[in-house]
Nucleic acid binder design. Structure first.
Length: 873
RNA sequence: GCGGGGGUGGCGGAAUGGCAGACGCAGCGGCCUUAAAAGCCGCAGGCCGGUAAACGGUCGUGAGGGUUCGAGUCCCUUCCCCCGCACCA
């Protein structure tokens, strides 16, 4: 007999099962038409936001969301669902190209290497992906269809070339989309950007603004995320109004306003400095000042412009506009036209009617430049002083208040007094429409999607520039491949590095005449805008995704990822899905039914008295404190992002080699609620490892022949009633907690079970341990599978059904109830669970008799199975 | 400034308006061991009283008020932190 120590050793268990799962394609999802596909089986599509395979490898943030969807996937499989749980690579993009420039390695090569690393790392974590569905956006077999979808957009008039100003980033050598620029700096790298006119491909996402907005309501997304999208789309309802310009017959300035009802209070007008009419209407006397202001505004970066937001600036053009409400000779209708940079050329019409009485910004401007502020409201709030100020235009009012009596035209055709705000708007618009001076108008902040980049490492456009204009590459000739190049350095404005691939650029059009290929490439978000579709049918060589496959799998039932894609990726994916829906290619209108944002995994760092973060290598523990290693200064612990600079980055590989993948998965789920940001605490990791070890120990004795279990688990024996009850409760709790993505409390429940079971070790039955392994499986699949096998479970645990909960096991015969007097617990009683109130009360009175003595009971409250409260006097 | 989320032990966090602090970490005590580690068993919010234990009292979920028999949870006021948007007419 060879007894040896049987320790829980993830390093041997985990690779064994990973290999088994992979080789036997255990997690393969069947599509309609596949052999063995069962149409009666319900489906579940659990999707992760696929990673950009960076050279740095996997970050501990990745497995957080990935573990969450994996738990749900494994649980759904056990519940009888056909589960689609795929993984792939968002492989085109700037970093690979930047890296290629630095190291002179082709991005295809580095990307392939990074993908291999990521795949290895993910496979070491035991995720139940269907690896037969692995896709990469940089794979020609994939981007062939990205190009094809782009052609669909083009065919529907949704892709066009534009020369409008776009965000140009000198440091990155490319243009960027609106959501890639934050406060005038690039999201990636934080480089300054500026607006420049360049020829670009643009997608008409604005045509879908209304649907992108209204169909948000059908989705199971967090309110905050929906709000972010709503605000990004930025719908405003109002009117456009034409103003004549004095002395410029036929010239009209059109403004957009959400408050046409305040037209009576318009006392000046503001054009953005870039407005096309500025030059025409500026008087000779003002020309110098106006041009100087325009020049200054143009040279200011967006950053500076917003920095100066507090202080209004502007210049009068010398021109006057005519308020359409007043007759031409009425001085109230003659309003000066200014230019100011608080009016943005790209929003609305780039011009506003300024109503200082009803708009804070206009009020501030009027005050600064001494422009009249005609009062237009007659509020009756009870605060007489405030009301008077508003009436006289000394105070700005943006709330709904009654209109002043003088808000009426001379002929009485428009009179606002007595109307509500909504009625006032309606009346003003009707009046303007009738006279051809304006119309109701809805405006969106959402801009069209700038869809080209001056870079090498992206999808080429299937576009030829011929002498007759743009010609598209026929479907049969897709994909248009990237040419091989050795030098990818940005070529500067406006050429992408592709311009140097002369043999590639020079080609022939369909008539055999010389033509040039489009040298811009698609942005990173192109491939990720439809990958969830390709996962449904990843190997299809004839279509981007068969309708049968997308009809079956879509929408995604659960999509988990970071909040950083709130407006970019998620909006673009919704847009493409809607376009493909309109084209009759997919049935769903929305791709992602339930979306869940995981929080960020942060880290501890230590800062000194000056508030500067001290790198981890310069700190040391001293008793309960952490001090500066050289100066000995006591440091303060803070929670911050993981950063190379601070030296507090946790590498998932290290955690796996020290504790195993099951521990990593479990720890990340145990840290706290999935949606919360929370710091990684290395000291907490052994806690969940110990839990797995205790789970192991329930089945495997410390010293035994290899593979041997506790003797009592070798035979079938009746289940101990107490343990059985605890087990059913645990299964029930874990079920409910997975459903609501509360993995931390599910794990806590299993810990309680293991603690109880450890104390009753010799009463455990094999059946109980098998069921425990089943509920542990979604969280810690390797150790669970190993225990299942050793216990002689039937087949593979990964394919075993979820254990049944007997509702009778969830109720006790007796319950303990707290007895309160005036809300304070003064005693406890144990009564039959279904005891009548009077029985409960009798027991309760007895339990707290000493507190009731000499008092009158004013009220008795019984909360069944919980407590009794006596209100006494 | 506007919008959203949040403030609970030494730390991460639990709590359908019903016994605050589950579970884990760190801490303390014990068992095991020559010893240590590991493991196992147990204790553990603060304060006051009690030689001590049992126990008893009292305070306690950022602060202040309110509703309620009862509030971490609901309402009002206020402070602080995080995220998003930011002159969008």
């Amino acid at each position: 007999m060879t007894e040896q120590k049987q320790t829980y050793d993830p390093a041997t268990i985990e690779p064994k099962w990973q290999q088994f799962w992979l080789e036997h394609k255990v997690f393969r999802a069947k599509n309609p038409g596949d052999p063995g596909f069962d149409p009666k089986q319900p489906k579940f599509y659990a999707l992760d936001m696929f990673p950009y395979p960076s050279a740095a490898g996997l970050h501990v943030g990745h497995p957080e969301g990935y573990t969450a969807t994996d738990i749900v996937s494994r649980w759904k499989r056990a519940k009888g669902f056909n589960v689609l749980h795929p993984m792939g690579w968002d492989a085109f993009g700037l970093p690979a190209e930047q890296y290629a420039i630095q190291t002179n390695t082709h991005p295809a090569k580095t990307t392939a290497a990074n993908v291999d690393t990521f795949r290895d790392q993910l496979q070491r974590l035991g995720f139940s992906y269907d690896w037969d569905r692995e896709i990469s956006t940089a794979d020609p077999a994939y981007f062939r269809w990205t190009q094809w979808i782009w052609k669909q957009l083009h065919a529907r008039g949704l892709a066009y070339e534009s020369n409008a100003p776009v965000w140009w980033c000198e440091a990155l050598g490319t243009v960027l989309a609106n959501d890639e620029v934050i406060n005038g700096k690039s999201e990636r790298g934080d480089h300054p950007c500026e607006r420049r006119p360049l020829r670009q491909w643009v997608l008409k996402i604005t045509e879908y603004a209304e649907r992108l907005l209204s169909e948000l309501n059908t989705l199971d997304w967090s309110e905050s995320l929906k709000t972010m999208q709503r605000e990004w789309i930025g719908k405003s309802e109002g009117a456009e109004i034409d103003f004549d310009v004095a002395g410029h017959e036929g010239t009209k300035i059109r403004v957009f306003t959400t408050r046409p009802d305040t037209l009576f209070g318009a006392s000046f007008m503001v054009l953005s400095p870039e407005h096309p009419l500025v030059a025409a209407i500026t008087t000779a006397a003002q020309r110098g000042a106006v041009e100087a202001y325009q020049k200054a505004a143009a040279s200011k970066s967006e950053m500076e412009r917003t920095d100066l937001a507090k202080d209004k600036s502007g210049v009068w053009t010398g021109a006057y506009a005519q308020n359409p409400l007043y007759p031409a000779n009425d001085p109230r209708g003659r309003i000066p036209v200014w230019i100011a940079d608080y009016v943005i050329v790209t929003y609305g019409t780039g011009a506003i009617m300024a109503v200082p009485a009803g708009d804070e910004r206009d009020f501030a401007f009027a005050q600064k430049f001494g422009i009249a502020i005609p009062g237009i409201f007659a509020p009756k709030s009870g605060d007489a002083e405030k009301d008077a100020k508003i009436a006289q235009g000394q105070l700005c009012c943006t709330d709904e208040v009654p209109y002043a009596a003088h808000c009426r035209t001379a002929d009485g055709s428009l009179s606002l007094a007595g109307l509500s705000l909504a009625e006032g708007k309606r009346a003003a618009i009707d009046w303007l429409v009738k006279r051809g001076r304006g119309e109701a108008k809805i405006t969106y902040k959402l801009r069209d999607w700038l869809f080209s980049r001056q870079r090498y490492w992206g999808e080429p456009f299937p576009v030829l520039h011929t002498q007759d204009g743009v010609e598209l590459v026929p479907d049969a000739q897709l994909p248009v491949l990237l040419p091989h190049m050795d030098d990818f350095k940005p070529g500067g404005v406006p050429e992408s590095p592709l311009i140097r691939a002369k043999d590639w650029v020079a080609t022939k059009d369909s008539k055999g005449r010389p033509a040039q290929r489009e040298i811009n490439t698609m942005p990173g978000a192109a491939g990720s805008s439809w990958y969830f579709l390709r996962f449904c049918d990843p190997q299809n060589a004839n279509e981007f995704c068969s309708k049968a496959a997308s009809d079956y799998w879509l929408p995604v039932d659960l999509y988990v990822g970071g909040t950083e894609h709130a407006v970019g990726h998620l909006l673009y994916s919704r847009f493409w899905t809607k376009v493909l829906h309109d084209a009759g290619r997919v049935t769903v209108k929305e791709p992602f039914h339930k979306l869940y944002n995981q929080g960020m995994i942060q880290a501890f760092a230590y800062e000194d008295a000056r508030g500067a973060v001290v790198a981890m290598k310069d700190t040391k523990e001293q008793g309960d404190d952490v001090v500066h290693a050289t100066t000995g200064e006591k440091l303060k612990r803070i929670v911050t992002k993981m950063s190379k600079r601070y030296g507090n980055v946790i590498n998932p590989d290290d955690v796996v080699s020290e504790y195993g993948a099951d521990t990593l998965r479990l720890y990340e789920m145990y840290m706290g609620p999935l949606a919360d940001s929370k710091p990684w605490n290395p000291k907490d990791v052994p806690g969940v490892f110990r839990f797995l070890q205790r789970s192991w120990r329930l089945c495997v004795p410390e010293y035994a022949e290899n593979g041997k279990l506790h003797a009592h688990l070798g035979t079938d024996r009746p289940d101990d009633a107490e343990i059985e009850k605890a087990l059913h409760r645990t299964i029930h709790k874990v079920d409910g907690d997975i459903e609501r993505l509360a993995f931390n409390t599910a794990i806590a429940a299993m810990m309680i079970f293991v603690n109880d079971a450890t104390k009753a070790m010799d009463r455990l039955s094999r059946s109980q341990m098998l069921r425990y392994a089943q509920i542990l499986q979604p969280f810690a699949p390797h150790v669970a599978e190993e225990l299942w096998q050793r216990l002689g479970g039937q087949g593979l645990l990964a394919r075993a059904p979820w254990p049944k909960v007997d509702p009778a096991m969830l109720v006790d015969d007796e319950v303990e109830m707290a007895v309160q007097v005036l809300g304070k617990v003064r005693g406890r009683i144990t009564v039959p669970t279904e005891a009548a109130n009077d029985v409960v009360l009798a027991a309760a009175r007895q339990a707290v008799a000493s507190y009731l003595e000499g008092k009158t009971i004013a009220k008795e409250i019984v909360v069944p199975k919980k407590l009794v409260n006596f209100v006494v006097k």
